Computed example of a mutant assay.
Amino acid sequence: MPSRTKKMKKTGAGLRAVTMSVAAASLALALTGCTRLETTAPSAARAQPTAQARFGTVDCSEAKCIALTFDAGPSENSARLLDILKEKQVPATFFLLGKNHIEKYPELVKRMADEGHEVASHTWDHKILTRIEPEEIREELERPNKEIERLTGHRPTLMRPPQGRTNDTVHEICRELGMSEVLWSVTAKDYTTNDSALIRKRVLAQSSRDGIILLHDIYPGTVPAVPGIIDGLKKRGYVFVTVPQLLAPGTAEPGKVYRP
């Protein structure tokens, strides 16, 4: 029979584990800026097909799909990134910033759309949406939408809130504007390092089917990591798709949050 001391040690360890889990959950909720964040997985979106035709020729209910996404561009690194994606025949989803990005590199926004990538919004000025008033939220979302539509002829339907911070007010405004929010399941934290090998290693270690990879083409270590990420995941049987392709034959619904 186990001693009382051993039982107490086990109980203490269990309590510490529960406490750590609760703390982690509380931190995740704090980051969203709301008390509860309801998200929809790509597989759930696919289970609700719409009348709209499936994007492209990939059926992600059968294929091992993964979506490569880039935040906060365009930048001086984006042309090289587009060259790599074209060479590798990989589509991506770009969540673009307005100030100092869309307005500075309009030709790259056009190129992204022309080469078959999904062009979406990361707000105008990267303000944390949960900290500003509703009218400011609308402006942060509407300004890049108007510029992207002017440049590409297509109004974005997807957005990614800065730092992933969102709440019920953001959801409601997105619903009014016909936009869906897209979070992620894989992050290399490329804002903390310029080590391309480390960025590649982190992405490969975290990737799984229906994953959404978050990278930033504004950092110098990121774009050089992309060829290795693509080659490594292709060797594992992954098929790269845009976020809309990942959800098809379902479509993203305005006001909803999508995350694997």
Rank of each mutant, 00 (worst) to 15 (best):
R46I: 08
L96P: 01
T35P: 00
V119Y: 05
E76F: 09
L15W: 01
H101V: 03
E133Y: 03
H117R: 02
V22S: 02
M20G: 05
L141M: 15
T50C: 11
A72Q: 04
G56V: 14
M20E: 11
T39F: 12
F94R: 03
V22H: 01
G12L: 15
G56F: 12
E136K: 14
I102L: 09
G14M: 11
E136R: 11
S75P: 00
L97N: 06
T5F: 14
A72G: 03
L27E: 01
R80Y: 03
S121A: 09
E103M: 08
Q48G: 00
M20R: 09
R143D: 00
H122W: 04
E136W: 02
E115A: 06
V58S: 05
R138Y: 10
A13V: 12
A30F: 11
T39P: 00
K86T: 13
A79S: 13
A120M: 06
H126I: 10
G98Q: 05
P144N: 03
A79K: 09
M20I: 14
L129I: 08
V22K: 01
R138Q: 13
E62T: 14
M112W: 06
A25W: 12
N100L: 14
S121Q: 03
R16K: 10
F70S: 01
L27D: 03
P134A: 08
R46F: 09
D71E: 10
G98L: 09
Q89Y: 01
A45H: 04
Y105H: 14
S78K: 04
G56Y: 09
N77L: 08
R4C: 00
S61K: 08
A13L: 14
D71P: 04
C65Q: 01
K104D: 07
A28M: 09
A45D: 03
L129T: 01
R111I: 07
H101M: 08
G56S: 09
P91H: 06
T39Q: 07
T5Y: 08
E107K: 12
L29H: 02
D114S: 13
L15F: 11
N100A: 15
E76A: 15
A47N: 12
K104L: 12
A25Q: 08
L97H: 00
E142H: 05
M20F: 12
H101D: 01
T19F: 14
P134T: 09
R36M: 10
E115D: 12
E62V: 15
G12T: 10
K99E: 12
I128L: 11
P134W: 08
T40M: 12
P49Q: 10
K88L: 06
A79W: 00
D71T: 07
R143V: 09
V58N: 00
E76Q: 12
R4N: 06
P42W: 01
K7S: 08
H117G: 03
Q89E: 15
T69S: 11
A51V: 15
T39M: 13
